[in-house]
Simulated scan of single mutants.
Amino acid sequence: MIGIVVSGHINFATGMGSAVKAIAGEQDQLEFIDFVESMSTDELEAELRQAAKRVDSGEGVLFLTDIPGGSPCNRALAIMMDTDNVELIAGVNLPMIANAAFERDGAELKELVETLLDIGGSCMQDMRKELEAVMAPEPELKCEDGL
């Protein structure tokens, strides 16, 4: 099973962890690392490296971070650059993280990345447009031959 490490600023990771637990239940090989104000970026990277080792069963590790270019992303990127079988997605949302827990067993690491990127984009919706589409009146059907 692919190991997953979620990280982000302040309580992003632990907040997502609470939500994922409510949706998917307790998960093995899944850790949540917050980057809090009292932490240096070197300390963050050390925590991320330790977490990656704990969740790695040999099928790879996927880092999921909050902001592309933020410290959690940058430090996970450094790990990806010097560690085999590690991938990183930045800018994740709850549907991506929850689905990562469901989809990772039996998946290849690159395949999981593609699946999560598809899910992430498809979950964003303009709810006003969705509501307007549902509330739009049905077009009247005309049967010219009387049937």
Rank of each mutant, 00 (worst) to 15 (best):
T41A: 13
Q27F: 03
Q27L: 00
G25E: 02
M39K: 04
F32L: 00
A51D: 04
I23L: 12
T41L: 11
E26K: 09
A19D: 08
R49D: 13
A19V: 10
F35K: 09
K53A: 14
Q29S: 10
Q50R: 15
L48Q: 02
E43N: 00
E26N: 01
E43V: 01
A51M: 02
A19I: 13
M39T: 12
E43R: 03
V20D: 01
K53G: 09
E26V: 05
M39E: 10
A46D: 15
M39Q: 12
V36W: 04
A46V: 07
E26P: 08
A52P: 00
S38G: 14
Q29K: 10
L30Y: 02
L30K: 06
A19K: 05
V20Q: 02
A51W: 01
A24G: 08
F35C: 01
E47V: 03
A19C: 08
I33A: 03
D42I: 07
I23C: 10
L44I: 06
T41R: 13
A51P: 02
A52F: 03
E47W: 05
A46H: 14
E45P: 07
D28F: 09
S38T: 13
V36C: 05
K21M: 02
I23T: 08
Q50T: 14
I23R: 01
M39R: 11
D28G: 13
E45T: 09
I33Q: 03
M39C: 10
Q50E: 15
A22R: 13
E37N: 11
E37S: 13
T41Q: 09
S38N: 13
D42L: 14
E43G: 08
D42Q: 15
K53Q: 15
G25R: 03
E31C: 03
S40V: 04
Q29I: 07
K53M: 14
K21V: 06
E31Q: 12
E37A: 15
